[in-house]
């Protein structure tokens, strides 16, 4: 790490971005509090899922019958890679390279995120149409779609946010406000990847091994 002062979670912009650093500490701490409360929501959805996936199967399929490892594995790799590309975007932002590098990494992240959401939608639609496992069939399925769907909607809103930021970069340029918005989106994006670690472990891997 460079010697510059640490004032908030995530990548700090450092000495070269003094104007963006003013006010960054409380802004980003506030956003960090939001992320932690979001984490609490996910934790409760996980708890509901844990109970429902064992006791709420009703006459529907069990997790082991429904899930296969291939799709979750690819989705995991894509989301992990997108977390890394966003890290590269943050570095491009911090070290004020040409704006093209930042935009390119952001677009790469967005494309990976979009592929992830598309794969998830195709998962859901094949479960519903081919496996006859819609959310209303059993408590397990309701909890599954609620948990994984909530995560998917978070990723989709991250994509919309990213699009808005790309427009802002184009129109406003890299003014301090835009820089801080990119930093907060980075935290949001990395946090969603952390939630996904929980999902692929406790939903898919646990489901297959039951």
């Amino acid at each position: 790490m460079s010697a510059s002062k640490y004032c908030h979670v995530g990548l700090n912009l450092g000495d070269g971005n003094t104007s963006a650093n003013e006010g960054a500490e409380s802004l980003i701490f506030g956003f960090w509090i939001f992320l932690m409360t979001d984490l609490v929501i996910f934790a409760l959805l996980f708890a509901t899922y844990a109970a429902m996936s064992l006791h709420g199967v009703a006459e529907g399929p069990t997790p082991a019958q429904l899930f296969a490892l291939k799709m979750p594995f690819i989705e995991t790799l894509i989301l992990l890679l997108s977390s890394f590309t966003f890290g590269m975007a943050s570095l491009a932002l911090k070290y004020s390279e040409n704006r093209a590098a930042l935009v390119a990494w952001l677009v790469a992240t967005g494309v990976l995120g979009a592929i992830f959401v598309a794969m998830e939608i195709s998962d859901f639609s094949s479960y519903i149409t081919e496996d006859h496992a819609p959310p209303q069939r059993s408590g397990f399925l309701s909890a599954y779609y609620l948990l994984v769907g909530t995560h998917g909607i978070h990723v989709a809103s991250g994509l919309i946010w990213m699009l808005v930021l790309l427009v802002q970069i184009a129109i406003l340029g890299l003014i301090p406000d835009v820089k801080l918005r990119i930093l907060r989106l980075a935290l949001f994006w990395h946090m969603l990847d952390i939630v996904w670690v929980g999902i692929f472990t406790f939903v898919y891997l646990f489901g297959v091994s039951l």
């Binding site: 460079s2 995991t76 992990l80 977390s83 890394f84 890290g87 590269m88 570095l91 911090k94």
Partner: peptide, 25 residues
């Protein structure tokens, strides 16, 4: 130098996360 170190930091994170994911699957 800071940029090189920080890029290495992210790469190391990616590598570790990748290994742990592969191990779990």
């Amino acid at each position: 130098e800071g940029r090189v170190t920080e890029r290495r930091h992210y790469l190391l994170g990616l590598l570790l996360a990748l290994l742990l994911t592969l191990a779990a699957f």
